[in-house]
Amino acid sequence: MERFAGRRALVTGAGKGIGKAVAAALSRAGAHVVALSRTQADLDSLQKECPGIQTLCVDVGDWEATEAALSELGDIDLLVNNAGIALLQPFLEVTKEAFDRSFNVNLRAALHISQIVARKLIARGAPGAIVNVSSQASVRSVMDHTVYCSTKSALDMLTKTMALELGPHKIRVNSVNPTVVMTEMGRRNWSDSQKAAAMISRIPLGKFAEEADVVNGILFLLSDQSNMTTGAMLPIDGGFLAS
């Protein structure tokens, strides 16, 4: 079912994991997709799998380069702010470089790209939908995740304030807040079996999320099926936040 036919969608962090899966799913559902990543090889791989997808190579942590790249894109109806990094350090060992890079990519880029897309939507009087990819770590602390948790907590508040201010322009803004997702990054950061078991023991469904679980939530929030939902944080966590 081509429920996104005629829509133009921008997905950041689309070279791997959730972003790549979202870009492919939106393309299959009829959207014209612009997939953004900082790694050209990843974009080339995606385009081989989904030839209809347009690619854009830029580091979203670079404000000026992002502004220049997106100025050439034209109209965008749907935005998925998925680009993110997890630089894990114990609190007492957090570095300035890790802090700045994490906030630049996980928070500042979402604000900046959303501004660019929203301004164009408002200028043409068109409705739109934005989904920010957050985390259960926005509301629950995790060892060695001081900076990551902080960026995601800030992203949730950004989601709410964007929803408040963009709602009158018919632009909906929501987030998905997954538990650990079995992407390449998820497997790498949770490869320690003891660490993983401790987290899984706190999830009522007893497992980590798969990419498809998150993709389905994002597509729901982008679609007209959620046209009365904005400013929401959708947990995709197997019940972790209920425990």
Rank of each mutant, 00 (worst) to 15 (best):
A110D: 01
G52Q: 14
Q194F: 09
L92D: 14
G84R: 01
C50M: 15
N82G: 08
A21I: 07
Q47F: 02
M162G: 00
A212P: 00
V131I: 07
A5V: 11
G84P: 04
S134K: 03
S135M: 05
V180R: 02
V80K: 03
A35M: 08
T151E: 03
T146D: 06
G239D: 12
P90K: 04
G217Y: 02
D156I: 12
R124T: 11
L234T: 00
M182W: 14
S71K: 09
L222H: 05
G84E: 05
P204N: 04
G17V: 00
A209R: 02
L164V: 13
V34D: 01
M233P: 00
A98Y: 10
D59L: 07
R172I: 10
F240S: 01
K160F: 11
Q89K: 13
L234W: 04
V215A: 01
T179E: 13
E184N: 10
L205A: 06
I200Y: 01
E64D: 15
A65S: 15
P51N: 09
V94S: 10
L166E: 00
A5D: 11
L79F: 12
A126Q: 14
G167F: 10
R3W: 09
P168D: 08
N132R: 00
F91T: 15
K170M: 01
V173L: 07
G84L: 01
K16N: 12
I236M: 03
S193N: 10
S141I: 13
I130L: 12
G19W: 04
G239I: 10
P204C: 10
D44V: 15
N216C: 11
G15A: 04
A197C: 02
I113L: 02
N82T: 06
R202N: 09
V60C: 09
A129I: 00
V80W: 02
R28F: 04
V105R: 03
W63E: 15
G128L: 05
I116A: 13
A209S: 15
L88K: 05
L121S: 03
M228E: 06
L79M: 07
M162V: 05
L219H: 02
N106P: 08
N106C: 09
L164N: 08
A24F: 01
G74T: 06
W190D: 04
Q40W: 09
G52H: 04
D44L: 14
V147Y: 04
L234I: 08
D100P: 00
I171F: 04
E64I: 06
A21R: 06
T55F: 05
L26Q: 08
A163N: 00
K195V: 14
M199F: 15
Q115L: 10
G128V: 06
F220Q: 01
A69H: 02
A9V: 08
M157S: 12
R8C: 10
I116M: 14
A29Y: 01
Q89N: 06
S175G: 11
P51D: 09
G128P: 04
R28I: 02
D237N: 13
T230H: 03
E67V: 11
W190H: 15
H145K: 12
R101T: 11
M233G: 08
E2D: 15
R3V: 07
N106E: 04
S37Y: 06
G167T: 11
A24W: 01
V33I: 08
T66Q: 07
A5R: 12
V80F: 05
E211C: 08
N106H: 11
N104Q: 14
V131E: 03
A5C: 07
S114T: 14
G125D: 12
I113V: 15
G231T: 07
A35R: 03
R7Y: 08
Q54Y: 03
